[in-house]
Amino acid sequence: MQFRDAGLLPAGDSGNTFFQTWQEEAGEPSRQITMRNVIGVIPGTNPAFSKQSIVVGAHYDHLGFGWPDVRGENKGKLHPGADDNSSGVAVLIELAKALGPALKPERAIVFAAFTAEEAGKRGSAHYIAVKKKYPADKCVAMVNLDTVGRLYGKKLLILGGSSAPEWEHIFRGAGYLTGVDVDMVSEELDSSDQRSFTAKGIPAVQIFSGPNADYHRPSDTADKIDSDGLVKVATVAREVVEYLSSRSEPLTRRGPADDKQMSSRSERNVSLGTVPDFSYSGKGVRLSGVVSGSPAEAAGLREGDIITKMNSTAITTLRDLSEILKSLNPGSRVVIIFLRGGREMNTETKLIPK
């Protein structure tokens, strides 16, 4: 096992296992499914920080042959998930190998490979609910590695930085020390396992190399991974984790996130085919590209366009666009107002099933 070979100690359900195991109802017809997180730890050395932890996480699940979140035409096809999220697990393992043999952190560093992120962040939610040796109220921070495999010279994006005011300074320092260009994304996004932590008031971020048109598609393959970029991601993550493990004070907690909206939100069942530019901080949603064969491509949208309105609803953030799409059905026709080169334009297209 990779965690054992890296020198981590077991931190699962008992003192001699890396597995955190439980049962959940799932599927149609409903049946009991065994779920497993894989948890290892570098114990802390400072008695004053007893039970305190830094969690470094990545999810190892993906969509397999088509469950639960795939486009209709791709059901039954293998989804390799090389970027989402084999890339994150690869960096998690390499960090464990780099830090496990030598580092003597003041706080414990917990390495967590979560299951069922794609099915509602169930693995990370279970970890938060049951972990006793390193409880949630003693968790100083969480760093989530999800979809980090396609940096290719772009800025490394940090999602969830508003969960603690210190994050911006921490990542600015890590970027300076490593020479990696880092950009904090201000918008709150229900993006990955860090949300299980922020929902409990724990400062948590996702390290992210950016969106691409292969997301949740069979075309998310290993040949498209930027190996040099993975080294940069790992270098930044190592700087951050080592700093947090010995920082004299915990990060500032801003209170639990509003999880009511997260739990009640409907799932989107339509596809527009836009690839957002997460580094954009202005009003509207700027595109970094569109998916081939998508309604967005048919409408003539392209990289650099900024969507400002859909039908009669103004779009100021990516969340606005997501919420509108959740209210629509396959076959719905939408009028899109967008800016191109500062000029307002409009187009129309028909949404397809997700």
Rank of each mutant, 00 (worst) to 15 (best):
P10Y: 05
G284T: 15
D13P: 05
N269R: 13
M310S: 04
L99M: 12
Y215A: 10
A113K: 00
K326V: 10
D13R: 02
K104F: 09
N85D: 10
S219A: 07
S53E: 06
G100K: 05
G120K: 08
E73N: 11
V180D: 04
K232N: 09
I307Y: 13
G7T: 00
N85R: 07
D13A: 01
L244F: 05
G304P: 01
H126I: 04
A222R: 06
R195C: 09
K138Y: 09
I202E: 04
S30G: 14
L103Q: 07
L230Y: 00
S271L: 14
K155W: 14
V205E: 08
T313V: 15
D214F: 12
V182L: 11
Q32E: 14
N212K: 06
A6Q: 03
E187F: 02
N85I: 00
E249M: 11
R302Y: 05
E25W: 14
D214P: 04
T17V: 02
G161T: 15
L145T: 03
A204H: 12
G66R: 02
W22L: 11
S124P: 08
F197V: 05
G44R: 11
G282Y: 15
S245V: 09
S186P: 01
P256W: 02
S292C: 09
V335I: 11
W67V: 13
S86A: 15
V185C: 06
S124R: 01
E297G: 12
I307F: 11
A204L: 14
T347E: 08
A213E: 14
G88K: 08
E323Y: 13
V205H: 12
F338D: 06
R36W: 00
V91Q: 03
A296G: 08
V233K: 07
I307H: 14
P68T: 09
D228H: 09
Q261S: 11
V290D: 07
A119Q: 13
L8E: 00
V231I: 11
R319M: 11
G293R: 12
A96W: 03
H59N: 11
P68C: 09
T347H: 05
A298F: 13
V291S: 10
R268S: 13
A125V: 05
D277R: 04
L99C: 04
L157D: 05
L95E: 00
L9K: 14
S53K: 06
S209Y: 10
L92F: 03
S50M: 03
F111W: 05
N74H: 13
S263Q: 10
G149N: 11
G40F: 06
I225V: 14
P68I: 06
S332H: 12
H216I: 07
K224R: 14
D181S: 15
Y127L: 12
G15R: 08
L351F: 08
V180L: 11
P203W: 07
P101L: 12
F114W: 15
I307T: 09
Q194I: 02
A141P: 01
V38Q: 04
D137S: 12
M35G: 01
L63D: 00
E323G: 01
K132W: 03
V148W: 13
P218H: 03
D320N: 15
E239M: 09
T45E: 15
R31K: 15
D137C: 02
D69A: 10
P330V: 01
G179H: 10
